[in-house]
């Protein structure tokens, strides 16, 4: 077959046909993969919600509502209820103070703001340093790390390393309203990840944003119901 000549008409038609075929085939692939892509995103969200909340019997994802933080972020909140009573809220929080880019964290709060658990959804921190935040801020005696420690005992003996005892790393069970959610370098209560202070600060920032936004919102609704009563009684609005 002879090579097609490089005339304007030929070039135009070839590119048009190629682009058409490419576009159509991509459209088909998009149609086929659209549902699985959404399903896998949803599954990830569901898993994160389950991980950070106590047992619940409703569907938090269907009762989702949005919170606006002071910084202007829009946070998603997933309320968990057992027998109709609020047992916790999973909040998808975000910070832009990371070492590189945004960090998205799902954090579970009890109704009073105490942290139940967290799950890092998305981050671009340095692998091996900032990326440790996925487990660093949990109690040191969690099974995975313990297992690891046992495996490594020979090396620790070889290099003469003693276990540090964990320090004040965990944020689980702490209430940001009562304890100082800052890295110890900034005068706070939490030990930063070794060699990743910026990532640690960003992590705690995201947690604080979730807590502050959630409690503000809660106070506001409380104030509203309280305020309407007060107005009826002729009192001052706050």
């Amino acid at each position: 077959m002879a090579k097609t000549e490089s005339s304007l008409k030929n070039m135009f038609l070839t590119l048009l046909v190629i682009a058409l075929i490419a576009g159509t085939s991509l459209g088909f692939v998009y149609k086929f993969t659209k549902e699985p892509i959404e399903a896998s995103k949803l599954a990830k969200q569901q898993m994160a919600i389950k991980k950070v909340l106590p047992e619940y019997d409703n569907d938090p994802a269907s009762e989702i509502y949005e919170l606006k933080s002071q910084e202007g972020y829009v946070l998603k909140a997933f309320p968990a209820k057992r027998n109709g009573e609020l047992v916790g809220v999973a909040i998808e929080t975000i910070t832009k103070k990371g070492f590189s880019g945004e960090i998205k964290i799902m954090v579970g709060l009890q109704p009073d703001g105490t942290i139940i658990n967290y799950d890092v959804l998305e981050h671009k921190e340095t692998p091996g340093l900032g990326s440790k935040m996925a487990f660093w801020f949990r109690p040191a005696d969690n099974s995975a790390e313990k297992n690891n420690n046992e495996k490594n005992s020979f090396f620790k003996w070889l290099y003469g390393i003693k276990d540090g005892g964990g320090g004040n790393r965990s944020i689980i069970g702490k209430n940001p309203g009562k304890s100082n959610m800052k890295v110890s370098k900034d005068g706070g209560d939490i030990d930063a990840i070794t060699a990743a202070t910026i990532s640690s600060r960003a992590f705690l920032d995201a947690i604080s944003i979730a807590y502050v936004t959630y409690t503000n919102e809660k106070n506001k609704t409380n104030a509203k119901t309280g305020a309407s009563k007060q107005i009826k009684e002729g009192g001052n609005n706050e």
């Binding site: 077959m1 090579k3 490089s6 070839t14 590119l15 692939v29 993969t33 892509i37």
Partner: peptide, 30 residues
Amino acid sequence: NLIPDKVRIPSFIVVIATFVTIVEMTMQAY
């Protein structure tokens, strides 16, 4: 043989980009 010489690079790029996008969407899904 169907592609005129002068537009071969853009044509190749479109072909490649199509397959890359297919890979990207399939990976994201599965």
